[in-house]
Nucleic acid binder design. Structure first.
Lengths: 138, 138
DNA sequence: TTGATTGCAAACAATTTGCAATACT
DNA sequence: AGTATTGCAAATTGTTTGCAATCAA
């Protein structure tokens, strides 16, 4: 199941960086820039390819927001595939939700609507607390 | 609030077509082709622009699937902004879910997690009944 | 007639691919 | 040495924009 053959410097540096900043999410360009800022330069193509791989392996989640470039964020390996994610459309914050309600929901949708929700692929969009407050003030 | 000034033939034909096929979803190219097949040709740009407008006005919903072109589908004006949608990642079918469970969920997420889900923008991805059966047989 | 709409062609932006140079084991 | 990986440049793809011609009011 392991898809790596060689352990390369750019890839491990990418993985480390994402893991050490697991509270943030990055576009390919963000990441490329950050990695280059560490000293050795890394090509954008490589970042694309390794992110794709990390997503496939499950340690990184990809978020697609309509017009913008995709965002990537480290997810703590196990667990994230089962719970849902909330993504704030305003500030981009990602919230992990792991509670019974979600499980019940999944169960309900399966039994009542015959549909098997893929929690790992599903993101609920909306506004986080902070951004909702912000809107009021405007 | 009405954003139309002139009523044009391409636009009304588009709207009609979408409404008359509200059980299906279309990419810009699908739609352009179908409209051209009706006789008078319509430019892709026009389709883009009018879809954008219909989405803004709320009569059409837009779905973004990662790599693929966006899909558009007529939604019966009122109501669709409040309920959730299930999108089958295999066959592309769109299912409208309007039941108490979802409302409760929204309520729960708001009170427990401080997050206001935007149902209109949120799509739950997974497999519909038909496609799940299909997978078993393979 | 005035202003909105159309649609072509060109511009853009995100991502992918071909391929020679390079790094890993 | 042999194979995977890198990274540039070029190609693709979905979408947007400039602008002159056309259409609705």
């Amino acid at each position: 199941m392991a898809s790596s053959r060689y352990e390369t410097e750019p890839r491990s540096r990418m993985a480390d960086y994402l893991k050490n900043n697991s509270d943030k999410h990055f576009t390919v360009d963000d990441l490329t820039e950050s990695l280059c800022a560490q000293g050795r330069r890394v090509g954008r193509t490589t970042v694309y390819r390794n992110l794709e791989r990390l997503v496939r392996e499950g340690s990184v989640q990809r978020f697609d927001t309509p017009g913008a470039p995709a965002c990537y964020q480290y997810v703590s390996g196990n667990g994230c595939a089962e719970h849902h994610h909330l993504h704030c459309t305003s500030c981009g914050t990602l919230i992990h939700v792991d509670c019974d309600y979600m499980d019940e929901l999944k169960e309900h949708i399966k039994s009542e609507h015959g549909f098997a929700v893929d929690a790992g692929r599903t993101v609920l969009y909306g506004l986080c607390e902070k951004c909702r407050d912000g809107e009021h003030r405007e």
